[in-house]
């Protein structure tokens, strides 16, 4: 509990360092832009990242369950999943960096075994967050493949089928379902 309060107290500093790490994964010109423009409509990557990271840190402190963490992390991973300059591990590694940031900021304040236990618990939550990111990333990639696979059918083929210009009836098509 003591550690959680300490993190809350240093939240701003921790978030700034975490955001810095995230922007550091981009080329320097891009990183400069992501940090400098505070408008979330003309800088949706920077804006989404700041929002996601802040809410995630708060959720981690209060040990929120995965179903609460997922919607907070989703918008940021959704962006990184289509930024093809990143491999999957590069897209998600910033989550692990939160561990070292917490250490750097809190090392000299962790004194007794209870603190260390608390730190271990928080690190475990960060590991779990990485697994959630893995799920989201794969889901986003599946969504992209689904869009690629159904692109023509869902637009042109459907219009032709409705008009009876193709032999198969669209109603006879197997239900493919859609992933979010």
């Amino acid at each position: 509990m003591r550690l959680e309060k300490l993190i809350a107290k240093h939240k701003k500093q921790i978030l700034n360092q975490w955001f810095e790490v995230l922007t550091g994964t981009y080329p320097s010109d891009t990183a400069r832009f992501l940090k400098a423009n505070p408008d979330s409509f003309t800088n949706p990557v920077g804006g989404t990242a700041r929002r996601s990271m802040e809410t995630l840190l708060e959720a981690l402190i209060k040990n929120a369950p995965p179903e609460e963490l997922t919607p907070l992390l989703d918008p940021l991973i959704r962006i990184r999943a289509v930024q093809t300059m990143f491999t999957p591990s590069q897209a998600t590694a910033f989550i692990l960096d939160l561990k070292s940031i917490l250490h750097t900021n809190l090392a000299n304040k962790i004194n007794d075994p209870q603190d260390r236990l608390e730190m271990q618990a928080i690190e475990k939550r960060i590991d779990r967050l990485l697994l959630i990111a893995f799920d989201i990333f794969v889901r986003c990639r599946e969504k992209i493949y689904h869009l690629k696979a159904t692109e023509e059918q869902s637009k042109i083929y459907r219009a032709f089928a409705r008009a009876g210009l193709v032999r198969e009836n669209i109603d006879d098509q197997p239900e493919t379902g859609t992933s979010k």
Binding site: Y26, P27, D29, T30, F33, L34, N37, T42, N43, P44, V45, I79, V82, Q83, T84, M85
Partner: peptide
């Protein structure tokens, strides 16, 4: 113009500035 392109904003690739 550098940060006005949607492809730069979205892809993060400076050569899209």
């Amino acid at each position: 113009c550098s940060d006005k392109c949607h492809y730069f904003i979205g892809t993060g690739d400076p050569k899209n500035m």
